[in-house]
Design a protein around this nucleic acid. Structure first.
Lengths: 173, 173
DNA sequence: GCGATTTCTTTACAATTGTTATCGTCCGGG
DNA sequence: CCCGGACGATAACAATTGTAAAGAAATCGC
């Protein structure tokens, strides 16, 4: 899956960051793409001072505000570390070079984009169809490692509810 | 915007349908793409017998379950006419031909896919950030024609609430 | 090691939405 | 022209979630 990815992994630079480091701020243009070697990240949006987590990322994931990275537009969300991380980073510039020089990367990017669309739609439909309790149960089913690894208030914000409400749901079970 | 689109409009076949015609059923693989000449469509998902509308389409829009159309996977949603419609349709086969023979169409499709990702994300974030009342007000702001043209219970299902709740929200204003 | 911070739970109350049912209006087909 | 279905409003009640505040436990940083 990330086979092609490995081909230009040597272009990356190693970077270590503390927990709670903002790697990309909402509204800024994404100039860097990250590959997680160790640790985890989240993306989140600001809503009147209240944070809403939109996604979690773990070892092996590549993370960027693709929309921003690709179109040079302000990112709709922030990217932040949740744990101390070891990251491999590549700049937009270097990535452009790779795009033009390494065959197949372009197609892989498109496939990646397509998968993101599917994922985004799937998450969206889960929101439409299920209530918070059902979404929590779905999370336990499909991504148990998230429950075990991520502090609950982040999960609550990911589920679209308050930590109080998540605590109640957990007690109902 | 649809400039390139016009270039192969002659490949389309005209089709007239009644209101409430299912053009693609959830779970089936999309083999046809539609261009709306007159009328409007909606996409919706089935949730335990309850319909949830995910999007509305009007004159000038092109509609397909792109994800299904492109990857030959079962569609996650149905496509249905809300009014009597005049449609221009193209089969997957003919579309493939166009893709290979007409230069630039491929890039246009990718751009279209990218825009769908952005749109999908935007709608999703609106769900995350806003309550039903705010989403209704946003709808009035940004897409007033939808309010005027579409029966309320479809709008309610689009907003993720019951018709009863939408009626209450309208009365609160 | 220890104080400060973070995280989670609990409580009480308010606000919103869902559920079910009834009723009136409008519109189109036979 | 009339009947039936579609559509929207309303009411009463239940269930869920949000809000604010307080406290206990765990964890972090120095």
């Amino acid at each position: 899956m990330t086979g092609d990815w490995d081909r230009f992994k040597h272009l990356f630079k190693r970077q270590e960051v503390h927990a709670k480091t903002i790697l990309l701020q909402e509204g800024k243009i994404s100039r860097t793409m990250f590959f997680i070697e160790k640790g985890c990240l989240r993306t989140w949006v600001n809503n009147d001072g209240r944070e809403i987590t939109t996604q979690f990322f773990f070892e092996g994931d590549k993370v960027a505000s693709i929309e921003s990275f690709r179109a040079n537009q302000p990112s709709l969300y922030s990217i932040e570390s949740l744990e101390p991380c070891i990251l491999q980073t590549i700049s937009q510039q270097e990535f452009q070079n790779a795009l033009e020089n390494l065959p197949g990367i372009k197609e892989e990017m498109q496939e990646h984009l397509f998968k993101r669309l599917l994922q985004s739609q799937k998450t969206f439909y889960s929101y439409l169809k299920n209530n918070p309790q059902q979404r929590y149960e779905e999370l336990i089913e499909e991504y148990p490692h998230i429950i075990q690894r991520i502090p609950q208030h982040y999960i609550a914000s990911y589920l679209g509810i308050t930590p109080v409400s998540l605590s109640r749901i957990r007690n109902r079970r």
